[in-house]
Amino acid sequence: MADTSAQKETTTTAEPGPAVPVSGNIEVDTSYENDSTYGDELSSYSASLTSSVLDYRHENGRRYHKYRDGSYMLPNDETENDRLDMLHEMVLLLLHKKLYLAPIGKPQRVIDLATGTGIWAIDFADEHPQAEVIGCDLSPIQPTLVPPNVKFLVDDIESDWAYENDPFDFIHARFLTFSIKDYGKLVKECYRSLKPGGWVEFQDWDAYPLSEDGSVNGTAIQRYYEEVYGTFEQAGYELRPGVKLEQWLKDAGFVNIHVEKFIIPYGVWPKDKHLKKVGAWTQAATEANGFEGIALAALTRHKNWTKEEVMILSSQARADGRRRDVHMMFHFYVAYGQRPEK
């Protein structure tokens, strides 16, 4: 089998919520202007909105977001949050403790899209105390004790943005696989919401596994990915964004585009010590109920599988993933680009 220690390829080519279009005048409720109960009414609306965001969906023993219900099919419970934090550590190891690769300098205003547990935004804020850092996600699952230059918003990044008048120096997004249906549109929204000279960076997968020696072929783990990922793709989600990021950045108008492709092994089968550690983190994160978490909603909602059927397939995939003769790996991409100065 080829030496994976050198398998990194580089190519260089140098809510607030949806905006509401207004076609006419919006009638004003003039009764509130002299109404002493306006403060109570405002509090009531705020409480109602907060309640709707926190009214999570519970299904098959897992918890899911309720805001924009169904638009994201992975859980948001503690088990899933632990998995995301483990993947964060895996990527830090892969990138030798770097949170990003773009040459961003000292940004003043930064946003982390689909921030999840907020761990990247918090780490970035610690490294860049001069920056205002926003993390947005469908679920308010982030901690409350955070650096003073961090804040978190509940937002749907697939809706129209409203940041053009308050743009960013740096936009970061990681692990949007399973989340986005129109990735190209999202990249264009990033372009519109950056300051001239600002940078965007995406860190994402080609989520389908491969093996150089064909050892994944015919295994339960191959069947798992075909069943689960096929369901996501039929529902319209982008599962191979990594290979398309460079073209999307070009199409949006970015310059100074840079793409790096990394090998992420699953398990400790590589001889290379660095890749062995990366593979150990990947396997640990996936076995932390990752198989079930990714599959449950997709297969039970879209393919009428029972929970028990999903658990059996996940258990079989986990078992094959532990086999020493199965040498599974993934491609992971880091792509960044700059909005032109002029």
Rank of each mutant, 00 (worst) to 15 (best):
N81P: 00
L93Q: 09
G118F: 05
L93R: 08
P103D: 10
T115D: 05
L92F: 03
Y100H: 15
L74F: 11
L84W: 07
E127V: 03
G105T: 03
L74Q: 13
R83L: 05
H128D: 08
L99Y: 10
D112P: 05
S71G: 01
D82E: 15
N81R: 10
P107W: 04
N76P: 01
Y72P: 09
A102Y: 11
Y67C: 12
R68P: 02
R68S: 01
D126Q: 12
T115N: 06
D69P: 00
T115E: 02
L74A: 12
H88I: 00
T79Y: 06
L95S: 04
L113Y: 01
L92V: 08
Y72K: 03
V110Q: 09
Y100D: 04
P103W: 11
L92I: 01
R68K: 15
I104W: 04
L74G: 05
L94R: 09
L87R: 09
T117K: 04
P107C: 06
K98F: 01
L99K: 06
V91Q: 11
V110H: 03
M90N: 06
D126E: 13
K98Y: 03
W120T: 13
E78Y: 06
L92Y: 02
L92H: 11
A121L: 08
G105F: 03
Y67F: 15
A114P: 00
R68W: 07
R83V: 08
A125I: 02
F124Y: 04
Y72C: 12
F124V: 01
P75I: 03
D82G: 14
G105S: 13
G118V: 07
K97P: 00
N81S: 15
Y72W: 10
Y72V: 14
P75G: 03
L95P: 00
K106H: 10
L95Q: 05
D77N: 12
S71Q: 14
I104P: 04
T117A: 09
G118E: 12
A102E: 08
A114G: 14
T79W: 11
Q108I: 00
W120A: 07
I119N: 07
P103V: 11
K106G: 04
D123R: 06
R83S: 14
L74W: 06
M90A: 14
I119E: 12
L95D: 05
V91F: 15
H128S: 03
S71C: 09
D112G: 11
H128V: 05
E80R: 07
L99E: 01
N81K: 09
H96S: 15
Q108E: 10
D77V: 00
E127D: 13
I122F: 12
Q108L: 11
D77G: 02
T79P: 01
L84P: 00
H96W: 00
A121R: 08
S71I: 15
V91K: 09
I119Y: 02
E80C: 14
A125K: 06
A102K: 10
H88R: 08
D112R: 04
